[in-house]
């Protein structure tokens, strides 16, 4: 009975959406905001990747909210799962092949991750994408050597610092009679690494914060079995 009702509800929702979607102007959307971003984005923000100019330029305030959500999730997850029991036995280390590959992967992944973060304003990628790769780079050695564990203190400081700096850069503009999160510094030459003013800096902070938070999330979840 309950299942039949559920199916009916979901079927109704799907039908409604199908009818609605059939009339959507696919491929010919009005693009009211989009056209303006395409026309003025490079000039106003100085980034070649216009998605980045939206993420940390026009909608940097959304990105701040997004960072806060990830921060909240990481914080709440840590509080729910609790501290790792120091006496709990850790898994044994992996074999030589895995350990050696992990050691090999760590620097490579870090380089790739930071490359993607730092070139977020020029090529596809950015703080979120690169931050995830950095988190993977830090987590793989932990998987290979569970006995070592990880210092949560450093991660907490990194998170705090990166988040606070993001807001402080935003506030710096405010104190120079600008608006909150207004891009500062010169725009530079379009397409160069050092261009786009403070936008790449903000994206770097996003990357560090996302990397630290995701690492913390993964380590907390991996330790979940060993909580007292």
């Amino acid at each position: 009975m309950r299942k039949a009702a559920s199916l009916l509800f979901a079927g109704g929702l799907a039908f409604l959406l199908a009818v609605l979607v059939a009339k959507l102007p696919f491929g010919e959307t009005p693009m009211v905001l989009g056209k303006q971003v395409l026309a003025q984005g490079a000039e106003q923000t100085g980034t070649a990747n216009l998605v980045t100019s939206v993420v940390v330029g026009y909608r940097a305030y959304d990105t701040l909210g997004e960072l806060s959500i990830l921060f909240t999730a990481a914080l709440a997850l840590g509080l729910v799962l609790g501290k790792r029991n120091a006496a709990a036995p850790r898994d044994p280390d992996a074999g030589l092949v895995l350990r050696a590959s992990a050691d090999l992967l760590l620097p490579l992944l870090l380089v790739v991750g930071f490359y993607i973060i730092l070139h977020g304003h020029l090529t596809p990628g950015g703080g979120f994408q690169g931050g995830v790769i950095v988190a993977a780079a830090l987590f793989i050695p932990i998987l290979a050597r569970p006995s070592r564990g990880l210092d949560h203190g450093v991660l907490v400081w990194l998170e705090s610092l990166a988040g606070a700096l993001f807001i402080l850069i935003g506030l710096a503009a405010l104190f120079q009679d600008g608006a909150f999160l207004e891009p500062l510094l010169g725009k530079g030459e379009l397409g160069r690494l050092l261009s786009g003013g403070t936008l790449p800096l903000l994206y770097l902070l996003v990357g560090v914060k996302v990397g630290a938070e995701l690492t913390g999330l993964l380590v907390n979840l991996a330790d979940a079995e060993a909580v007292e």
């Binding site: 806060s68 921060f71 705090s160 606070a164 405010l174 608006a179 909150f180």
Partner: peptide, 23 residues
Amino acid sequence: MNGAALLVALPLLTAFLTPSIGR
């Protein structure tokens, strides 16, 4: 007038710093 952004930015800034200060 732009200072109205502080109404959001300050609580968030405090929240980011609180766990570290709490240590």
